[in-house]
Amino acid sequence: MELITIKNASKTYKTGVTAIHDLSINFKKGEFVFIIGATGCGKSTLIKMLYREERPTSGQIFIGGIDVAKITNRKVYKIRRKLGVVFQDFKLLPKSTVYENVAFALEIFGVPSDEIYAKVVKVLELVGLKNKAKQYPHQLSGGEQQRVAIARAIVNGPKILICDEPTGNLDEKTSMGIMNVLEAINKLGTTVIVVTHDTEIVDKMKKRVVVLDEGRILKEYAEGEYRHEAI
């Protein structure tokens, strides 16, 4: 079943740069997909359009049947609540503890405190940070901070988890740790889309891979087909 359908999407920025050219692709429910490509290939723009940070200049992007491109800025939150997003720079609140950072995503919806506690503890356990709940982001390593960001992204139980270069700032060993967390989340039924340029990791993970080049799909590999030397 298709969870995300992108139909002939193009994106041209005001500067005149066209980042995505007439791109069509589908993502199935429960999939784990890597989007790779050289810097400037349009992979970040592609996922920015998924969480509606950018709108396609033309074409359609359906997530769970809703055309994301048509959502107004005022209503963006509605789609964001269905997605979890993780970034290279973690985007944590520096003055809030690990627990508060994760709970934040639930508090704004008015979830009761006991329910928040249960959910936060559960996701912190999942990402392996249960005993660091009271620490502040600056007291954690990069890998741990990224785990907090992942915990925050999934605490709402989103159907899709979008990761923009989640291991960009991390060493190989830590990156693999993060990937294992993402895989565990994927096994629980969440669709995971990871944008990365770290092909070694992609190689090890043996997942579906989409290679972008100049805003177009250069190649697609089914699960287990991808080999590191491909690009």
Partner: peptide, 16 residues
């Protein structure tokens, strides 16, 4: 601004 961006990211409405 960062805080506001994060709020938007996790699905906070403008009112939130």
């Amino acid at each position: 601004k960062r805080e506001i961006d994060i709020m938007r990211l996790v699905g906070a409405s403008n009112m939130n």
